[in-house]
Design a protein around this nucleic acid. Sequence first.
RNA 1: GCUGCUGUAGCUCAGGGGUAGAGCGCACCCUUGGUAAGGGUGAGGUCGAGAGUUCGAAUCUCUCCAGCAGCACCA
Length: 672
Amino acid sequence: MGKHWKITLPDGSVREVEQGATPADVAAEIGPGLAKAALAAKVDGELRDIMRPFEGDAELALITSRDEAEALELARHDYAHVLAEAVQSLFPGTQITFGPATEDGFYYDFAPPEDRGPFTEEELPEIEEEMRRIIKADKPLRREVWERDDLIARWRKDGESFKAEWAKELPEGEEITVYWSGDPGDPDGWMDMCKGPHLASTGKLDSQAFKLTRVSGAYWRGDQSNAMLSRIYGTGWLNKKQLAEHLHRLEEAAKRDHRKLGQDMDLFHLQPEAQGSVFWHPKGYRIWRELEAYIRRRIEEAGYQEVKTPQLMDARQWQQSGHWGKYRENMFVVPDETPSTDDEGPIVSGDADMMALKPMNCPAHVLIFKQGIKSYRDLPILMAEMGCCHRNEPHGALHGLLRVRQMTQDDGHIFVSEDQLVDEVRRFCELTDRVYRDLGFESYAIKLALRPDERFGSDEDWDKSEAELREAVIEAGMATKEYGWEELPGEGAFYAPKLEWHLTDAIGRTWQVGTIQSDRVLPERLDASYVGEDGERHRPVMLHRAVIGTYERFIGILIEHNAGNLPLWLAPVQAVVATIVSDADEYAGEVLARLEAAGLRAEGDLRNEKINYKVREHSLAKVPNLLVVGKREAEQGTIALRRLGADEHQKVMSLDEAVAMLKAEATPPDLR
RNA sequence: GCUGCUGUAGCUCAGGGGUAGAGCGCACCCUUGGUAAGGGUGAGGUCGAGAGUUCGAAUCUCUCCAGCAGCACCA
């Protein structure tokens, strides 16, 4: 007769179980419904298999599909295993490596057999079919503890070199577990090395709630110098309905794609001759100019002075700033020499002095700071620049407006004395808050990225820098849950910790835009100083900061956030005057002139087309206001206003009323 | 940069070893119509670039370029 153990349930009740009992036994004891619904267990706070026996007295919480986050994580991990099992069963000789749950699904990385290439999208349906078979077979998932050497031998025997390598490198003394799908020894059994936990059997998954979505390459252990594996992605859910909702969300996101909307709305284009650099069309640049004018007003109000600095600077300057050493592979370098006109010869000689297009504005701002002697009375100096920078981003990284090679930052550097630092960071927190709310972002998160493993500077400096940034956010009253306050260990830049602002958009995606970093390195390298109250020279601290990041990327985010329906003050065309009959042409001209006189961006549509056609076209073009005029309106001095996305079809009002209303609505948020 | 997929008219896309098709858009004509596509006629393409195979290549093969997805990168 074994010992009895006390199991405490979340409601405080205690049950006695015999040695060897499992959470599943407890669930069964409580009731058949729970036994069926229970997917896993939390034993003393640790997520575990429901079939793993207790090891002593314990607190137990049973996980069901109602515990959505845990249940999804478990299910996705299981889908990944089922995927691996399916692939090995269909394609013998495939090596398995690693396959975790992701944000909305799972993936698994494989090394396909040598006689074939990576898996293709055409093969996915077949693999899905095999996965369904495995799920329907309801194979038990059993945990087993192995000795390291035995496991390595087993992997070697099976030709699983990646798994063998992995097992070899697991820390000494760590318990190595494998999971069987099916019973050990079963001819249809399959095993993978895994920490777990897993569901009790494959049948706990819904064979209709997953979908393999794509294939891609991925490096073994994420390292570019390692073998390229073949990755299969899937999305996985607890039930069919969740999957359908997810697929719907993907469609919605695709409709918001700024590259598609940018083309449909005639905002900008990209072409191979200028990879990664944007051709802004009149309407797109209109958005830019409005946004830029707004940012200018906000930063001037906050005490910044705007500057403009050179695009090209001598390589020696970049060497001194440290960029040449740390950042050169991302810089566009040009020889400072008249190109040869000899078609046959090299365009430039080998010994020309080099110059580089600026990838950042900071060194130039320090150079402005260094002009003349600065006193402590001059500080803080807030210097801003709509700085156009070039960065040689890898081809594969380029993506519409979101990742470009030529970008314009809403950059700024604040030169402060040590005792001004916290206050300036706090003021920056307030500036970002104003700007994001003005631009229509209701929620954002502030995160503090802490020191990375590889870094410059002493631990004391890091302690100090991190504490200062943290203190500033606390003083601003924003180190709270409401502001998504979070600290991210290891995510800082190599020279400094940074605060990051992450916007949440209309469909829940997040975008990092703003940042502020305190930098004591660059002022040192470029020997910037000011004269203190004591008459001695002191080093200023330099705060690098951006609110919207870059205009290119931020406009891309705005387009996606608003699905193209920009707030009126940013809309490139704010109103179109459309005629019903040509007899109203003259009146339409009058209406247009009134709108323009009120500072509104309006266009006329006097084409010989039916009003249905005009309504459709301008609606698709996302014109926010359509002012329809026919004979009736011309006689009465009214307009029929049709608003994009409004419920009622139209509203007839006097021209005066309409102009006043639209003018008020089109006022930028900071001027209201 | 790496892996895979894709590249045909301004746009979206079909086709496919015997020198090109649709819809939308555009131009012109008819139509003056009250809130999401009125009708007719017409113009538009070295089928991404180069090389190869072939009697013949837009189609097959190779190389390059670009786009897309993912990976890596993102000071």
